[in-house]
Amino acid sequence: MTSAPERRDANAVSAATRVGTHSRLDTAQSRSGAHDLRGTLPLRVELARQVRRRRTQAVAILVLVLPVLIALAFRIGGTGDDTGGGPALLQVATSGAGNFALFTEYVSVGFLLVVMVALFCGDSVASEASWSSLRYLLAIPVPRARLLRQKLIIALLLSFAAQLLLPLWAFLVGGAFFGWAPVESPLGGSFGWGEALSRLLIVLAYSCGQSLVVAGLAFLLGVLTDAPLGAVGGSVMLVIVSNILDSITALDPYRQFLPTHFQYSWVDALGPEVVWDDMMRGTGLALVYSAIFFATAWLAFDRKDITS
């Protein structure tokens, strides 16, 4: 495109007068019109755009601080003496690194991780719209389906990274605070390290799968609205409403179709053997919901007039 001497020349002149720069307009060649759109908005570029955002850093800090806070709380207050009350995971939370990680996961799944996923996925497109940068990306042109795909990949990557980072960091924090004893099942007995690791992976994989529902809805809302807050808040609201409805047992048997009904089914992986039934149901339900949400997002964005 440009030869080296010209570039040096341009820089040298521009230091004194900007008008000198304009001479480059006469000599430089226009960008090619026939470039491959499949190379637009590479993942590393989108990652760079998102990672340096304040909210990404805030989430990272939260994920790093939370396990330490929980561990300190246990150190100060203990796990409580009320036997039989509270979740079984609480009883064994301080027995070692693995149990502490599981407990942290248990208390985070209901809300914290939901908010994180909603933030990463809902804010991804909506914030571009609110900054007006969306139209310039589309005018590059990044094909719309490709834009969504690249943004979704990075949003999910960040979501999953947060979901993995939390228990892994909690594991390290738990180890530092409570030692490295083997994982104790809340149902009695303990797992060897290999078994514990595979159970932990099942738990993480399942909760990542469950978060697809929130991711899908947040992404859809983010495509439909130009307000990031609306997308994030809307999907968090759905989770809350779904949880409220799920607590009404009179809604049986329809309750089981609520998107959050199987949210905690990963506890089935903590027994003497893994019981897959509810995890299969939960994963199936999550896939159905997220497929609907994502497909709607794609179709809506394809037809949308970008007016922001």
Binding site: G84, G86, P87, A88, L89, L90, Y106, P186, L187, F262, Q263, Y264, S265, V267, D268, L270, G271, P272, V275, D278
Partner: peptide, 10 residues
């Protein structure tokens, strides 16, 4: 033998 997904109790 199982944990309740709803309450976290066994």
């Amino acid at each position: 033998a199982g944990l309740s997904a709803a309450t976290g109790r066994s």
